[in-house]
């Protein structure tokens, strides 16, 4: 078959045109996917490579093994396992407490009418424009002062870090949550009130179960944000075994990046995996939340 007529045919046939367009887009997709997953593949390969330095690494390692992971978990100077547990502990506590504060406050904003309600809602938005990052100096000095009086709320303490994170609980997510609650008809509350239910009973028995989807999204975003936070933890935490994973990885990278690239890669991968799994498993819910204006740090 002569080539020209083949092309002619392509141009005329709608299905063939569509196939060509899909083929081109698939090729572009392949390039984009390479761009997006190459660094991840590279890190997986580094973590399995027995030579373990930045200079010698190849994409397909010779004699892959788990030596880097063994080294990672047994280093004395860099207690990776403690960092990991610290991060999970701090993120879980923060996510749950922060969600509770946000939800209860949003309930009050959605269901009660009181003086200053609208002003407060606006103020919450404006105040959060001042990112906690900018208040680093003040927060650092504050905890060094509080620590002189109450040692368990001073510098180098997980309690302090959780409290600072909770300072952001009255944030933009209140708007998201309130907006969601506003869509729940008030008839439900009113009929329960007639039955003699208290506000707290209405909130916990009626409203809360209906909020499940948005609760999950905000909980997860809280968790991810806290888990990934670096700078507050870096400033408030001082001792090696108290670091969170992000701080620990940064310090390890600063100290032994090139020589122990493989070990770093193993740590990076183990640190990233929980979050990646959460994201990929719940991507539809999270995307829904993001487009509604939920925030991730």
């Amino acid at each position: 078959m002569p080539e020209k007529s083949f092309l002619e045919k392509l141009r005329t046939s709608a299905t063939a045109q569509r196939r060509l367009s899909i083929a081109i887009r698939l090729i572009i997709a392949v390039f984009l996917i390479i761009f997006s997953i190459f660094p991840v593949l590279w890190v997986i390969s580094a973590s399995l490579s027995p030579t373990g330095t930045l200079a010698t690494q190849r994409l397909i390692p010779a004699n892959p093994g788990l030596d880097n992971y063994r080294t990672l978990l047994s280093m004395q100077q860099f207690p990776f396992w403690s960092w990991f547990l610290n991060s999970i502990k701090i993120s879980s506590i923060t996510a749950v407490l922060s969600l509770s504060i946000t939800t209860v406050a949003a309930y009050a904003f959605s269901r009660f009418r009181f003086r200053g309600r609208q002003t407060m809602l606006k103020a919450i938005l404006l105040i959060n424009v001042f990112p906690s990052l900018l208040a680093l100096v003040a927060i650092f000095l504050m905890f060094s002062q509080v620590g002189d009086v109450i040692p368990f709320l001073g510098l180098d303490n997980h309690n302090s870090l959780v409290l600072v994170y909770l300072g952001g609980a009255m944030g933009v997510n209140i708007w998201l949550m309130k907006g969601f609650m506003d869509t729940i008809p008030r008839d439900i509350d009113e009929s329960a009130q007639v039955e003699g239910a208290s506000d707290w009973q209405i909130f916990t028995r009626l409203i809360l179960p209906l909020l499940r989807p948005i609760l999950i999204v905000i909980l997860i975003l809280n968790y991810i944000t806290t888990y990934g936070d670096f700078v507050l933890a870096r400033i408030l935490l001082r001792s090696n075994e108290k670091y969170t994973l992000m701080v620990g990885l940064q310090i390890f990278a600063g100290a032994q990046f090139q020589q122990r690239w493989g070990v770093f890669a193993a740590g990076a991968l183990m640190g990233a995996l929980p979050i990646m799994i959460i994201y990929l498993a719940l991507q539809d819910q999270i995307v829904g939340g993001l487009t509604r204006g939920a925030v991730k740090g």
Partner: peptide, 15 residues
């Protein structure tokens, strides 16, 4: 394609 977004930013930057 969303994989880069799922990795904590600090880890990505160091990689």
């Amino acid at each position: 394609l969303i994989i880069p977004y799922t990795v904590p930013a600090l880890i990505t930057i160091l990689i």
